[in-house]
Design a protein around this nucleic acid. Sequence first.
DNA 1: CTCCCGTACGTACGCTGTACGTCTCGACAG
DNA 2: CTGTCGAGACGTACAGCGTACGTACGGGAG
Lengths: 210, 210
Amino acid sequence: MPPLNRTRIVAAAIDLIEREGADAVSMRRIAADLEVGVMSLYNHVPNKSALLDAVSETILSEVEFTDDPAAPWTDRVRMQARAFRQIAHSHPRSTMVVVSRQLKSAAGMLPVERALSTLREAGFGEREAVQIFRVFIAYVIGSLLREVGVTPTFAPVHGAIRADDVDAELFPQIGALAPHLSECDHEAEFDFGLDLLIEAIAGRLAQRTT
Amino acid sequence: MPPLNRTRIVAAAIDLIEREGADAVSMRRIAADLEVGVMSLYNHVPNKSALLDAVSETILSEVEFTDDPAAPWTDRVRMQARAFRQIAHSHPRSTMVVVSRQLKSAAGMLPVERALSTLREAGFGEREAVQIFRVFIAYVIGSLLREVGVTPTFAPVHGAIRADDVDAELFPQIGALAPHLSECDHEAEFDFGLDLLIEAIAGRLAQRTT
DNA sequence: CTCCCGTACGTACGCTGTACGTCTCGACAG
DNA sequence: CTGTCGAGACGTACAGCGTACGTACGGGAG
C-alpha cells in the first residue's frame, strides 16, 4: 500500500462520489476506502470543504479545452462549451460539486480567461464580452444540472412523467407532450440551445458592425 | 401559542433558511424556533426531505404568474421567465432548495404547463416546444443560481476579483475586465440573455413560416 | 365515566466533522 | 551507536445531525 497523500485522498473522494453520490461522501467513508484512520486524512487535507475544492479542481483540470485560435469565434465558443459539458460525461455525479465551488486557482480561471479572450477577439466590447460570457455560463450550467439530474424540477426525464399520471384537465399540454418530455437526448438538446445562443450573438455582432 | 401544524413548520423553515442559509436547517433548529420538542414536528411532516419539498412548493405557489393570453408570445415567455426570477428576490437563500427538488404536485407543474402552452400557441411543434422550453429552463435556472451565489464558479461577483489579484501574464483578459466582472446588475444581465434567447427563437419561427 | 386516539415529548442509536493527545518510525547530530 | 526530533498515523471525545421508539396527556365518542 503506497503512503497516504493528498492525491490518493482526492482520487478516493471522486471515486466514492461517482459510485455512491455526493451525499455518501464523509471523511470516515473515504478513510475506510483507503483503509486508513479517519484523522490521518487531516494530515494532508485541512478539512472537508478543502477536499471538495480539490475534487473540483482535479476534475476541472482534466477537461480538455482544445482551442484553435485560427477558427471562427463561433466554432471556438461552441467547442469551449462542449468541452465543459464533458464534465457531465466523465464525472456525472461530481458535476454539482464542481459547479458549486468557487475556485480562485488557475484551473478555475483558465476556462474563464479563454472564453473572454475568444469573445474579445471576436470583436465584442469589454462590457459586452462579460455579458455574453455570463449568458453562456448560465445556459451551460443550467444544462449540466438538468443533465445530471440535480435540478429535476421542470425537467422531468426518466419516464417519470407518463401521460396517464397527469390530470389531462389541469395540464393538457404536459399530458400531450409527455412522450417528448420523458425522453431527452442531452447532447442534442445542449447543442440546440447552444447553436441558438451563438446564432443570436452572431446576429448582434453583424448588426452592430453594419 | 397556536397549535403546531404543517403550515407553521414550513413557515419556520423558510424563515430559518432566509435568516441563516439552507445549511443551518435542522429539525432541532426548527423545533427550537417554534419552542417545541423535536419529535413533535414528525406528527405533521414525515421527514426532513418532505419538509423541504413543502418549502419548495410553498415558495413556488407564491410566484405570481400573471399571464395574458392575448399578448404576443414573446412578451408572454418573457413575463413567465421574469416571474420565475422573482423567487431569487423574494426568497434568495431558498432558491437552491426550490430549484433542486422535483415536485410532481400542481404547484410544480403549473409553470411547465403554462410555458408549454404558450409555445404551442405561438406555433411551435410538439418536439420543438419541448426543446425550446428546456433551453429557457436551463438559462433561467443557471441565471438564478449565479444570482444567489450557489454557483460562484466562473461568475465571480462581490469584488472578489480585483485587477491586482490576478496574474496579468496568465490571465490578461480577467485582469483587464475585472471591473466588469466584479459588478453585476442581475436584472439587466438576466434580461439581456432572455431577450437574446427570445429573439433567436423568434427568428427560427419566422424563418420556418416563410 | 370509560375508552381511545392524536399530539407532544424524552430518550436513544448511529451517523457526521474535527479538535486534541498519543504513539511510532525514519532521519540526522554528536 | 545513541539520543533527539519531526512528521505522519491513529484513538478518543464532543457537539450536532435525522429519526425510530416508547411514553404521557388531553379531549371527544360511546
